Amino acid sequence: MTSVRLIETSPGSFSLLLDAGTNQVDELVEQRGHEPNGYFWEGVARFLVTTEAPSLQDRVSYDPEGSMFCAYGTDRPALEELGTLLTDLATTPTRMDALITAAKAADFDFDD
């Protein structure tokens, strides 16, 4: 089970939510020197959009907190696509490890 979910906050407006600290990859994230909080997950989302899903650029906005990652907007398909990518990372330690390695090689700062 993943902590990623998409909700309609008002007609035509959506939020993609991920509960930080409740995912299968949290221990790995900590071992790699990061805090698996909402700000870390925003960095993950930004890195994913830059490297794997550039079509999502400028289609979602971010508003993380310490205990939760939030992406929001009116483009439901974009949020669904981002949700699929985040779910894969939140549930697949080898995928998360590869992403952290790639981000480090690119001098990307997760800002966690």
Rank of each mutant, 00 (worst) to 15 (best):
T22N: 12
V44L: 03
K104Q: 13
D111E: 12
T9R: 14
A90C: 06
F69P: 05
A102V: 00
E65W: 11
Q31Y: 09
F69W: 08
V4M: 04
P36T: 00
V25Y: 00
Y72M: 09
D75R: 10
G73F: 15
N37L: 04
G21H: 00
E42V: 04
P93N: 08
Q24C: 05
P64M: 05
S61L: 15
E8W: 10
L6T: 07
F110A: 01
A20Q: 05
N37I: 00
D63W: 14
N23S: 13
V49R: 11
G83N: 09
A103C: 03
P54A: 06
F47G: 08
T22R: 14
R76Y: 03
A103S: 04
F69N: 05
T101Q: 12
G43S: 03
G43W: 01
D58T: 13
D97F: 07
Y39M: 01
D58Y: 14
L99R: 03
E80L: 06
T51A: 13
E27M: 06
E52G: 02
L89M: 02
D63Q: 15
D88V: 07
A103V: 03
T51G: 09
L17W: 11
Y62M: 09
M68L: 14
A78D: 13
E35P: 00
L16I: 06
R95F: 07
R76Q: 14
R59Y: 06
E8Y: 10
I100K: 03
K104L: 11
C70Q: 15
E65Q: 12
R46P: 05
L82P: 05
D58S: 13
P54Y: 10
V60K: 12
D97Y: 10
T74P: 03
D112F: 01
T22V: 13
L48R: 08
L86R: 07
V60G: 08
L56S: 07
C70F: 11
S10N: 15
F110M: 06
R5V: 09
L56V: 01
D63S: 15
D26Y: 04
V25N: 01
V44D: 05
S3P: 04
L28Q: 04
S10D: 15
D26T: 08
V60F: 08
L89T: 02
R32N: 01
Y72E: 15
V4Y: 02
T2M: 03
Y62H: 15
V49C: 09
D26M: 02
R46D: 10
L16R: 13
M68P: 06
R76A: 06
P77V: 05
L56R: 08
T87F: 00
M68T: 15
G12N: 09
Y62W: 13
T94E: 11
L79Y: 06
L79I: 01
R32D: 04
E52L: 04
T2P: 05
K104D: 14
M1F: 05
A45D: 06
V49T: 13
D88R: 14
G43L: 00
E8F: 09
G43D: 01
L85H: 11
D88H: 14
L6Q: 10
D26Q: 03
G83F: 01
D19L: 15
D107I: 02
G12M: 10
S10Y: 15
G12T: 11
T9H: 13
A90E: 02
M1V: 07
M96W: 08
L82M: 03
L6V: 04
G21R: 00
F14V: 11
R76C: 00
V44W: 02
A71W: 13
F108W: 12
R5E: 11
T94F: 09
L99S: 01
